[in-house]
């Protein structure tokens, strides 16, 4: 476990020094402060709209950060051969992948918390309201980013950065469409269709009362199942690769 944490820490340090996270968070924070300047909010829904836009902004920012790290890390390490110094030691390839994923999940989580805190502060200043329920959306987006980073890592074990970014974007899009495509009309309960829709909590957070502990546990279960499956496939793919 120490080796996984060491690799994860290196990913976090690298992300901090590469400034990708800062740029994205600062840009998103500026946008968050700009949201209240948008005109034509209906009376009584202004905070709901603010929360919806903030959640969309959080998703977009976290998505950029996640892909910038997850889709590029392994191709870059292989190309620059820095991976030799890691994998020639007594480090298994699954440890390397898990550590990389872990580091990215930590970074995207930190970026999301920072962005949410800024958004909550902006709402407090503009609306004089404490919209701390936004952190419930942060949790859902963070879990989804964990799944998307696992997919991007899986692709990048065999493919280049650009292909992995395109693939992970398609995965996110299709992942959110699956529930609508296969559930409902066919009579299949939505929960039985493996999709990323479980992480979509815009409605309950922006316009409702949030979600309960049962739903949160369901999201954690989906996060663990998706991530474990994708990291397992990633390990099999990476094990067979010559470096």
């Amino acid at each position: 476990m120490n080796k996984v944490l060491a690799i994860g820490s290196a990913v976090v340090a690298d992300a901090i020094r590469r400034k990708v996270v800062w740029v994205v968070v600062v840009f998103a924070a500026l946008l968050a402060f700009a949201i209240p300047t948008l005109p034509s909010y209906g009376v009584g829904v202004v905070e709901g709209v603010y929360k919806e836009v903030v959640i969309a902004l959080m998703f977009a920012a976290a998505f950029v950060v996640t892909l910038a790290l997850a889709a590029t890390r392994i191709p870059s390490e292989v190309e620059r051969r820095t991976v030799f110094n890691v994998l020639s030691r007594d480090v298994r390839r699954w440890q390397y992948l898990l550590g990389t994923w872990f580091g990215i999940v930590v970074v995207s989580g930190a970026a999301l918390v920072a962005l949410t805190a800024i958004s909550v502060a902006a709402a407090a200043v503009v609306y004089h309201a404490a919209l701390i329920e936004l952190f419930a959306a942060t949790f859902a987006v963070w879990l989804e980013m964990g799944v998307i980073s696992a997919f991007a890592i899986m692709m990048s074990t065999r493919m280049g950065s650009v292909t992995s970014i395109v693939g992970a974007t398609a995965f996110a899009f299709i992942g959110h469409s699956l529930g609508s495509l296969f559930a409902g009309a066919s009579g299949v309960p939505r929960w039985y269709v493996p999709s990323l829709d479980v992480f979509n909590v815009i409605d309950p957070v922006a316009y409702g009362t949030g979600y309960g502990i049962g739903y949160a546990l369901g999201m954690v279960g989906a996060f663990l199942a998706w991530s474990a499956l994708l990291m397992l496939i990633a390990t099999v793919m990476f094990e067979g690769r010559d470096l």
């Binding site: 080796k3 060491a6 290196a10 051969r81 110094n85 890691v86 020639s88 007594d90």
Partner: peptide
């Protein structure tokens, strides 16, 4: 390795710390 490469954002001691941790 032949022509070893390192994460260039690290300092020398940080690089050795990372590889030391990986060496257990």
């Amino acid at each position: 390795p032949e022509q070893p490469y390192f994460p260039t954002q690290l300092q020398a001691a940080e690089a050795l710390r990372l590889y030391g941790q990986l060496a257990g």
